[in-house]
């Protein structure tokens, strides 16, 4: 690991100033950043510790729920308001990592965690995300965990977060602050597809600090489910995960939200499949149709061919759970 400086600027304003300097990087829980530093993937000159900033609050705001960027994944997942109003988020968080990691990991860090692609982590291997122009090792290589949607010939990595799959389904907004003031970024627009620039994971500008996320109120609390399929029962990233939320009127689906993890460079919202659910009766058939629509346009790379079967199977199963069919 390269030598680096560490500082803890006293105020939010001082943090903003500090992160505007070249080579500076925020550290929150450090569960992702420190790993990347140890592996030589990232080598910041200065770590700016933000853990003391007052960004841990979870509180109702007008029309929604605000969750501070430094709220711990474990705390959010157990929070009474979250469990009661946004159970999908709680379930997604609990499906992620391990209790020890969730006790360190923050909401801001979770949003900004980087891909787990083995080629990204191994500095002896080609990777356009780590070293633009060096090629994509995963194409033609070990790509069992990789994208089936929205990839490019430069990168087929996936965003590994569970929490973000729930947040994109719930139409959350990310609130960020920079020298220029604060701005709000819809969650669906926060992360990027790789395109020609897989080195950019998201649309956060240099020098911006995440303050928190806001989730608008909804009527999904009763019928939400997060289903994650992985290679072991806990402590593994998703092969495929599905966030499903339904609003039911009798047996009819009044409103629906559907998103997938482990399938794209960003948490993957399934808008067309949602449309196919709305107005339909709760039934295995309805869910199968939606699942088939959901995987239209999927492209696989050998090692992840199985996701063409696993993805619709997981969608159907998640919807069954959300609707109470099982």
């Amino acid at each position: 690991m390269k030598q680096f400086q560490y500082s803890r600027p006293a105020t939010q304003q001082a943090v903003i100033d500090a992160i505007n300097k070249p080579g500076a990087k925020i550290i929150a829980g450090g569960t992702n950043l420190v790993d990347l530093m140890k592996r030589g993937v990232t080598a910041p000159d200065k770590l700016i510790d933000i853990n003391h900033l007052p960004l841990k609050n979870i509180a109702p705001v007008k029309g929604g729920l605000h969750i501070g960027a430094l709220a711990l994944n474990s705390v959010v997942s157990e929070n009474k308001l979250v469990v009661a109003q946004q159970p999908l988020l709680s379930m997604a968080l609990k499906a992620g990592a391990s209790p020890q990691l969730r006790n360190m990991a923050t909401v801001g860090g979770n949003i900004l965690q980087r891909t787990r692609c083995a080629y990204f982590y191994d500095t002896t291997m080609p990777c356009n995300k780590r070293e633009p122009g060096s090629g994509c090792g995963a194409i033609g290589g070990y790509n069992r965990m990789h994208a089936i949607f929205g990839a490019s010939d430069k990168c087929i990595a996936v965003h590994p977060s569970d929490m973000c799959v729930a947040l994109v389904a719930l139409d959350a907004t990310v609130i960020v602050q920079s020298k220029k003031g604060t701005r709000r970024i819809p969650f669906a627009d926060f992360h990027r597809l790789p395109g020609e620039h897989p080195d950019l994971d998201n649309n956060l500008a240099a020098g911006e600090l995440i303050l928190g996320v806001e989730i608008p109120d909804n009527n999904f609390a009763k019928n939400s489910y997060y289903l994650k399929i992985r290679d072991r029962q806990s402590y593994a990233f998703a092969l495929v995960s599905v966030a499903a939320s339904l609003e039911l009127e009798g047996n009819t689906i009044k409103n629906a939200r559907l998103a997938m993890g482990g399938v794209a460079h960003k948490p993957w919202r399934l808008v067309e499949a949602e449309k196919a659910l709305i107005g339909k009766p709760v039934s295995a058939e309805t869910f199968n149709i939606a699942a088939q629509i959901a995987i239209q346009g999927a492209k696989t790379y050998g090692g992840n061919d199985f996701k063409l079967k696993l993805a619709p199977a997981t969608i159907t199963e998640a919807l069954k759970h959300a609707s109470g069919l099982v």
């Binding site: 391990s98 787990r116 072991r232 029962q233 402590y235």
Partner: peptide, 11 residues
Amino acid sequence: LGDYHVPVNAD
């Protein structure tokens, strides 16, 4: 040990 899996308690 993140990518090479061995059983955890839940397994």
